[in-house]
């Protein structure tokens, strides 16, 4: 309990929110909108998990939103050109991995600071996309939405994919050597190197993984409607980073787990719809979102200070 105070407190806050919604706005739990909302959130969760890995290894990536848009559009254009869906999926994941590898190479090989590298690639992907596509929607052919299956099945696949990614990463982080490497590099890369780990390889790998997950998330988002909006993914990086830090992953690396990330993610993802259900005026959205982020970290800070005394 002491070690996982943050995860417990965020989970507690989430439960509190859900309980009060159950009392004041039971409609929140209507199955159809709830499932829709979960499906819509699933791709973002996948990105957040990837970001969590990057932050655990003491790096950061703010280019995912732009990369997400590039992957969505590429997959969409391929699908619209009547290529088979698996090709589009592979292209999206592959392109994501290449984008991640670019970041990773600059960070791990040239040893540039990740926040600056990804700040640059964020702008470059986004503006390149704007030059190429100018904001025109891509209409997808039939058979792409929900992978050509009935809606319920499609939603099941999207949510299932997110769950698989979450569980696989959580398992790897906890039980596999590579997972422990991420923590080791994030806690103290020099010590990790002396222990025989190759920190730069780990960093490189984590960025590639995040890129590939971003590409996967782009597909998971793409199949939820018959069109691609090239502006998609704007601010996705902030949503994902906020979820990760609220979930208790330390920006200084090496500390945190995906359980916390899931709780933080769900908490933040529930707030905006909750405000609609509770009939709060929309101009409070951002202030409340900010206050929740601050409260989560402040609570943790206060507690740590008490413990240190």
């Amino acid at each position: 309990m002491k070690r996982h105070f943050r995860e417990f407190s965020v989970t507690g806050a989430l439960l509190l929110l859900l309980v009060s919604l159950a009392i004041f706005a039971p409609n929140f739990f209507e199955p159809q909108p709830l499932l829709s909302r979960l499906t819509a959130a699933a791709p973002k969760l996948v990105v957040a998990c990837g970001i969590a890995l990057v932050i655990l290894s003491r790096q950061i990536d703010i280019s995912v939103g732009s990369l997400f848009a590039v992957c969505s559009l590429s997959a969409g254009l391929l699908a619209a050109a009547k290529l088979s869906l698996p090709v589009a999926v592979l292209a999206s994941v592959g392109l994501g991995a290449v984008g991640g590898a670019l970041n990773g190479a600059l960070v791990a090989v040239l040893r540039l600071p990740s926040i600056v590298v990804t700040l640059a690639t964020m702008v470059m992907w986004r503006e390149g996309l704007r030059l190429a596509q100018q904001g025109v929607f891509v209409n997808l052919p039939d058979g792409v939405q929900w992978f050509g299956l009935p809606m319920a099945a499609g939603q099941g696949i999207v949510c299932g994919l997110a769950l698989v990614v979450l569980l696989a990463l959580a398992y790897a982080l906890r039980f596999l050597a590579v997972g422990r490497f991420v923590y080791a590099v994030g806690s103290d890369a020099e010590a990790a190197r002396l222990a025989g780990i190759r920190p730069r390889l780990v960093t490189f790998g984590v960025f590639i993984l995040l890129g590939a997950l971003t590409g996967l998330a782009a597909v998971m988002n793409l199949v939820q409607s018959p069109q691609v909006d090239p502006s998609t993914g704007r601010m996705l990086e902030l949503e994902a980073i906020a979820a990760v830090v609220v979930g208790g992953v330390a920006v200084s690396g090496g500390r945190g787990n995906l359980w916390g990330v899931l709780a933080g993610f769900l908490l933040l993802a529930c707030i905006t719809p909750a405000l609609t259900y509770l009939d709060v005026k929309p101009y409070w959205d951002k202030a409340i979102q900010g206050a929740v982020i601050l409260l989560a970290v402040v609570a943790d800070g206060v507690r740590r200070r008490k413990l240190n005394r």
Binding site: Q32, R37, A40, N221, Q224, S225, Q227, D229, T232, Y277
Partner: peptide, 18 residues
């Protein structure tokens, strides 16, 4: 909806049930 189609879809889903 921040001028985003995906976000509009989510907002509409919520509005329909709220």
């Amino acid at each position: 909806c921040d001028d985003l189609k995906d976000k509009a879809q989510a907002e509409a889903t919520t509005l329909l049930s709220a």
